[in-house]
Simulated scan of single mutants.
Amino acid sequence: MKFRLILSFLLLAASFRAFSQTSQPSAGADKGLTKIVIMYPFAEGKTFNMEYYETKHMPMVAGYLGTNLVKYTIEKGLAAGVPNQPLPYMAIGTFYVKSLKEYQAAVAPHIPAIRADFANYTNVTPVILVSEVVR
């Protein structure tokens, strides 16, 4: 009986260690980066062309960022976090950069072009959050 209990404990501990090592492989990899999140709120009558956003708009903006850009992601909203609640965002684009100052300098001359391109994929005014990744 003791042997089975010890064996079960060891297997559980090994499984937990394996899970914790594989479930968060990059937990600290993004630490210290600046994250620019562009969120497109959902509302009745609003539209969003994901194909254009993915193939034209985001690559255009990413091109302005050069070597300061670490990565970018594109997300399509599916549901709210609470059942039976409206979708909060239709889409979210995120840029991870090394330096906020370099990001701002890179996009500043292109703001008119970036804003003019909105009409090609959405009729929504985005909400933008700039933050520092702490974990």
Rank of each mutant, 00 (worst) to 15 (best):
I111F: 06
Y40I: 03
Y64I: 03
V107M: 02
I111Y: 03
A91R: 01
M58A: 04
S26C: 13
F48H: 04
Q21G: 07
L33Y: 11
L87Q: 07
D30R: 12
S26Q: 14
A13E: 09
G77K: 05
L7N: 04
K101E: 14
L12G: 10
M50V: 10
I128R: 12
Q104R: 11
N120M: 06
I128P: 05
Y64E: 02
E102F: 00
A108H: 14
I128Q: 13
Q85N: 13
A80H: 08
L100H: 07
G77L: 09
A113V: 04
G93M: 04
A43G: 08
F9L: 12
L65N: 03
K56G: 00
G28E: 15
F42N: 13
A116H: 07
Q104K: 11
K35W: 10
A18I: 09
A62W: 00
A119R: 05
F9S: 08
V107D: 08
Y40N: 00
A14K: 03
Q21E: 11
A108K: 14
A18K: 10
I6A: 05
L100E: 03
T125W: 07
N68P: 01
A91T: 04
T34D: 08
A14P: 00
F9A: 15
H57C: 06
F48K: 08
F118M: 10
T22N: 13
V107C: 07
F19R: 06
T55S: 15
I74Q: 13
N49T: 01
M60N: 06
F95H: 08
V70H: 01
I74C: 14
L7P: 10
S20T: 15
E75C: 10
L78N: 04
I128W: 06
P126L: 03
L5R: 11
K76W: 07
A29Y: 11
V70M: 06
L69G: 02
V124L: 09
T22C: 14
G45V: 01
M90Y: 11
Q24T: 15
Q24F: 14
V127F: 11
H110C: 01
P86Y: 06
A119I: 00
Q24W: 15
A80R: 08
T94I: 05
T55I: 02
R17Y: 13
L65H: 02
V127E: 12
L10P: 02
L100S: 07
K56C: 09
V37Y: 09
N68R: 07
P41D: 00
S99N: 09
K101P: 07
P112Q: 03
K98M: 09
F19E: 04
K71M: 01
V61P: 01
M90T: 02
S15V: 02
G77D: 13
K31H: 07
F9C: 10
D30K: 15
I74N: 15
N123H: 05
V37T: 12
P25D: 09
Y40D: 02
A105H: 11
I6W: 07
L33N: 04
H110D: 00
L12T: 10
F16V: 13
Y52F: 13
E44A: 11
N84Y: 12
